[in-house]
Simulated assay, not measured.
Amino acid sequence: MSFDIVLTVNGTRRTIPIPDPRVTLLDLLRESLHLTGAKKGCDRGQCGACTVLVDGRRINSCLALAVSLDGAEILTIEGLAEGDRLHPVQEAFIAHDGFQCGFCTPGQIMSAVGLIREAQAGDDPERVREAMSGNLCRCGAYAGITEAVLEAQKALSQNAPTTRQGEAA
């Protein structure tokens, strides 16, 4: 039995056939859409290497069934940069050596982007470490990751418009 679902992946609306209702979002991204940034680390939702944003929220894509996300908007690491211009979180990870081997980096970056969008980062390193605790780094680059999240949070808050369209100043 095959299903078709509609997803907006990195800004592109797509109708995607699902050959088996047990296919996870992670497997769909990697095997059907060839978006291999999200990694299959533990395949149990414990390491965070598969983190992507679904409708703006961080999820472990290895735990989400693709059929349950029909109509959702998915953002992966491949859709984060704008052309050749890196996202501020990506720039901060480079500036602060927030990675070593790089296996966990896409999940770490997507989790950081979600954390900042959720307004959970603040300026407290301990709060950032706690909010990022679902993303494991075997190399131990946590100090650089925390510094990168704090710098990106600051940069993004400085660049944020003071009023939104339709709101009074």
Rank of each mutant, 00 (worst) to 15 (best):
S2L: 13
D4H: 14
D4E: 15
R14I: 09
T15I: 08
P17D: 12
I18M: 08
R22N: 14
V23G: 00
T24M: 05
D27K: 13
L28Q: 11
E31W: 09
S32Y: 10
S32I: 08
A38C: 09
K39C: 02
K40V: 02
D43V: 02
V52I: 13
V54G: 11
D55A: 08
D55G: 11
D55V: 01
I59R: 03
N60V: 01
N60K: 07
A64V: 09
V67K: 10
S68A: 14
E73T: 15
E73Q: 15
R85Y: 00
L86Q: 10
H87Y: 04
V89P: 00
Q90M: 03
I94K: 05
H96E: 04
F99C: 01
F103G: 07
G107Y: 02
I109F: 11
V113Q: 06
G114V: 09
I116V: 06
R117S: 06
R117Q: 13
R117Y: 00
D124Y: 07
R127I: 01
E130W: 10
A131K: 10
S133W: 10
L136I: 15
G140W: 07
Y142A: 00
G144L: 01
T146C: 04
A148Q: 01
A155Q: 13
R164N: 12
Q165P: 07
Q165W: 14
Q165M: 13
E167K: 13
